[in-house]
């Protein structure tokens, strides 16, 4: 049986990849995609803990369900915001959105 640590390390790696994508992508859509990676890494964590530490009540799985549903809503709102910006500025490049500085 695969030990818990492996799942946790995988989730951490996925999270770090998500973070890397979050801070380096120039395209807003890819930023949102990176956020999805972060959330999925969290979900893997929750599922692993639920299976290995709390198989009886499986509270972690309930958490996961909530995270998935709220992540879907959040992605929808995020895409809406991206569209709103796109209508004004005709671009989705993150480098162009640095108007609110010092």
């Amino acid at each position: 049986m695969i030990p818990l640590e492996f799942y946790l390390l995988l989730a951490a790696a996925l999270f770090c990849i998500g973070i890397y994508g979050l801070v380096t992508s120039r395209n807003v859509i890819r930023v949102l995609m990176s956020i999805e990676l972060l959330l999925n890494a969290v979900n893997i964590n929750l599922m692993a803990f639920s299976n290995y530490l709390d198989p009886a009540t499986a509270t972690g799985q309930v958490f996961t369900v909530f995270v998935i549903s709220i992540a879907a809503a959040e992605a929808a709102v995020g895409l809406a915001i991206v569209l709103a910006i796109y209508r004004n500025r005709d671009t989705v490049d993150m480098e162009e959105f640095n108007l609110l500085k010092w």
Partner: peptide
């Protein structure tokens, strides 16, 4: 120090992380 306030969302995310 005000130049830390770069106006880039991703820089803020990096700082937080």
């Amino acid at each position: 120090l005000k130049y830390n306030n770069s106006g880039r969302l991703q820089f803020y995310a990096l700082t937080i992380t």
